[in-house]
Simulated assay, not measured.
Amino acid sequence: MSDNYKFFCHKGCEFFPCHKTEDPENFNCLFCYCPLYALGESCGGNFRYTDKGIKDCSNCMLPHKKSNFDYIMSKFQDIVKITSKNSKE
């Protein structure tokens, strides 16, 4: 089985690339909106918090690299736990 499902590059998107990159040919758009955002400091990406406390991921390439697909998938149980907790409150 191939790993083609781990990569999608949408060069026709008006926002492509949404982050600065030296390698647009290998820019992965599969996780256009990062599913790890909700994990806050536990996401594993290169982020910072603004003065207003907003998570700024503009310098993060974690979801845009094909090699990080397995890492992102490994974090889905953490996302499920967060959403389960929030739905009970």
Score class of each variant (00 low, 15 high):
85 K>H: 08
46 N>T: 11
84 S>R: 11
51 D>G: 14
24 P>C: 07
50 T>E: 08
8 F>L: 15
62 L>A: 07
18 C>N: 13
83 T>K: 12
7 F>Y: 12
54 I>Y: 13
86 N>H: 08
15 F>K: 15
30 L>R: 13
20 K>G: 10
75 K>Q: 15
38 A>W: 00
79 I>D: 01
54 I>K: 15
59 N>L: 10
32 C>G: 07
51 D>P: 00
82 I>M: 08
38 A>I: 15
67 S>P: 00
26 N>T: 11
64 H>S: 08
71 Y>P: 03
77 Q>L: 09
14 E>R: 13
49 Y>E: 00
56 D>I: 09
66 K>C: 06
7 F>Q: 04
63 P>M: 09
72 I>Q: 03
55 K>W: 00
69 F>A: 08
69 F>V: 06
52 K>C: 07
66 K>F: 01
55 K>Y: 00
22 E>S: 14
75 K>F: 03
51 D>Y: 04
5 Y>S: 11
74 S>W: 04
34 C>M: 01
14 E>K: 15
46 N>L: 09
29 C>A: 10
19 H>S: 01
14 E>V: 09
39 L>V: 03
3 D>F: 07
49 Y>H: 09
23 D>P: 01
45 G>A: 11
47 F>N: 04
47 F>I: 15
87 S>C: 09
17 P>G: 09
72 I>H: 04
23 D>T: 13
23 D>W: 05
56 D>E: 09
1 M>T: 12
81 K>G: 00
9 C>K: 06
30 L>D: 05
77 Q>M: 10
76 F>R: 15
31 F>S: 07
79 I>K: 00
71 Y>H: 05
72 I>M: 04
74 S>T: 02
78 D>G: 01
73 M>W: 01
43 C>M: 09
37 Y>Q: 01
76 F>A: 00
21 T>L: 08
33 Y>A: 08
22 E>L: 12
43 C>P: 01
82 I>N: 03
55 K>S: 00
68 N>V: 07
15 F>H: 14
82 I>H: 02
23 D>Q: 12
8 F>N: 10
48 R>D: 01
52 K>I: 03
18 C>E: 13
40 G>F: 02
40 G>C: 04
23 D>V: 06
80 V>D: 13
9 C>I: 03
42 S>T: 00
66 K>V: 05
38 A>S: 13
57 C>Y: 06
69 F>S: 07
1 M>E: 11
51 D>K: 14
44 G>I: 05
